[in-house]
């Protein structure tokens, strides 16, 4: 619980900073988070254990990138397997949908930044007009639970093609209107099941599940599926993410 409290304070502080400062802030907070997590252990010296475990997590990023098969699909399920109600989960505490951001669909725009040819903002009607597909896949949380949901939206690789994204770039970063941040590798961004979705279970994506849009990645753990996305950045600089700052493995592939 203590980690979560610290996280809330850090997020709160980071949210008030402009983006470059905020990124640097979150990066430097990495040490703090992993250190406080290890303080529960009396036997092993916090600093050296932290370094070794951090190094192993980086190694595991590389192993997972190597293991990732761009043609290997996550299993799809019949409609009868859908979990209802689908669990709500947030990075902020308390874990309540009442704290989810309220976003005005009329004024909303999605920003595109970084290595893309067409960086014009996207309005919701423009996004809703994109070609769509539906997937029923299993969302697996790093905590160990899983739930099957139905998501509809545009194939993310199609969206990247429309904005003229440089697909040789290393990372795609998502900055969200609840101040959540995460980033993914380009091969996963181009995976056929990676989807920018606007509908959930045949309805407009509800506020609790990420209105107006969520990135659905059935080949990664749940916390790599950001909600309330407000900005998509293509780039070569590692940007990490909110939970990654506290020590969750960055790649977190399934």
């Amino acid at each position: 619980m203590r980690e979560k409290d610290t996280g809330y304070i850090l997020r709160d502080a980071a949210g008030r900073l402009d983006l470059p400062t905020r990124r640097a802030f979150l990066r430097s907070a990495a040490g703090l988070g992993t250190l406080s997590m290890l303080s529960g252990c009396d036997v092993i010296d916090g600093f050296s254990a932290e370094r070794v475990l951090g190094g192993m997590s980086d190694f595991n990023d590389r192993v997972q990138a190597w293991l990732f098969n761009p043609r290997q699909l996550a299993p799809e399920y019949p409609a009868s397997a859908i979990t209802r109600p689908f669990p709500f989960n947030s990075f902020y505490t308390p874990n309540s949908p009442d704290l989810a951001p309220v976003i005005d669909p009329v004024g909303f725009v999605l920003n595109v930044t970084g290595k893309a040819e067409r960086k014009a903002d996207w309005t919701l009607p423009q996004l809703y007009a994109l070609p769509r597909f539906t997937q029923i896949t299993r969302h697996i949380c790093i905590e160990g639970w899983s739930a099957i949901g139905k998501w509809t939206g545009v194939r993310f690789s199609d969206f990247l093609a429309r904005i003229g994204a440089d697909t040789r770039a290393k990372y795609v970063t998502f900055r969200c209107d609840d101040n959540y941040v995460t980033s993914i590798d380009m091969p996963t961004a181009l995976h056929p099941q990676t989807q920018l979705c606007f509908w959930f279970d045949d309805q407009i994506l509800p506020r609790a599940y990420g209105f107006p849009m969520k990135l659905r990645i059935p080949t990664k753990l749940g916390f790599k599926n950001p909600k309330h996305i407000g900005e998509i950045e293509i780039g070569d600089d590692y940007t990490g993410g909110y939970w990654e700052t506290y020590g969750y493995n960055w790649f977190s592939g399934l």
């Binding site: 980690e3 988070g33 992993t34 997590m37 290890l38 303080s39 529960g40 252990c41 475990l53 951090g54 192993m56 997590s57 790093i142 905590e143 506290y246 020590g247 969750y248 493995n249």
Partner: peptide, 8 residues
Amino acid sequence: GGLIGALQ
């Protein structure tokens, strides 16, 4: 000390 460290 918690989920994050335990996973590492």
